[in-house]
Design a protein around this nucleic acid. Structure first.
Lengths: 140, 140
DNA sequence: TATTGTTATACTCTATAACTATA
DNA sequence: TATAGTTATAGAGTATAACAATA
């Protein structure tokens, strides 16, 4: 039996250390976290306008514009003017971008899967259950 | 019953999203993640030389040097020449730096505690158990 | 007028290469 | 010669302010 703040402290430390280790596993090591994060959004959530992408990532539009410029130069995304509202630009992931996301996710999951394989089944079940709870609580 | 790679994928997503939300909670909002991370190391692990600090954070010495410069300018750390090996410089956290770390940690824990308070006790127990498992597996 | 995207400018984080001081 | 720290330089992420095009 523990109190809320003790739980929070330990859960915070665990989440931040694990995610740090996971972030170190990246497919294209020349790609930054910001670029990969934006690419992943386009991969899993489909095309976005610049403003929508910036809002989802919690950065300003000029900042996201630069990130998208880099991704476009490297051939990972395309810009298409919106047919209806010509102020808008639809940013979409390319085949090359999809490949990078899939390879990176696979690499991260392979590392974690190796760690999980060393654990008792009951511990794996606990981690999986915890992940389900977190994903339900953190909407976004 | 799920397979290892499915577990890994879900656990990865949960850890990265939660830590992302936690990182947004910072006492001094003008302080970057890199600065806070270095400050936290000095707080929890004591003084470090520049090279040791750079290695622990996984960045180059020149990169850490800049980060330390910023922290020093803001009064959060001090540089002291090593008494024995005069090539070395011992970097230590100040009272002001300790206050920032403690306030940030407290802020992050308060945010998470509010989230936890909304959950059934069984879910909280699951999260706590998962955190224990992760902290045991990730030595760092 | 308001919105969308972009450019201009400035500061931080990152790296590699090169330099200084010390061991 | 090797190591610790630093400076020089350059590329990328971040922001705010200002601008053009469109609604």
């Amino acid at each position: 039996m523990t109190d809320l703040s003790s739980d929070a402290s330990e859960i915070r430390a665990a989440a931040m250390r694990l995610s740090r280790r996971l972030r170190q596993q990246r497919a294209v090591t020349t790609m930054s976290d910001a670029q990969f994060a934006a690419l992943a959004v386009l991969n899993y959530r489909g095309p976005h306008t610049l403003t929508a992408l910036a809002e989802r990532e919690g950065v300003t539009a000029p900042s996201m514009n630069r990130t998208v410029n880099c991704l476009e130069e490297d051939g990972y995304v395309t810009r298409e003017p919106d047919a209806v509202d010509r102020r808008k630009v639809n940013i979409a992931i390319t085949e090359g971008g999809i490949a990078v996301v899939e390879e990176t996710v696979q690499r991260r999951d392979e590392w974690l899967a190796r760690v999980l394989a060393e654990l008792p089944a009951a511990d794996r079940a606990t981690l999986r259950a915890a992940a389900d709870i977190i994903l339900e609580v953190i909407e976004r």
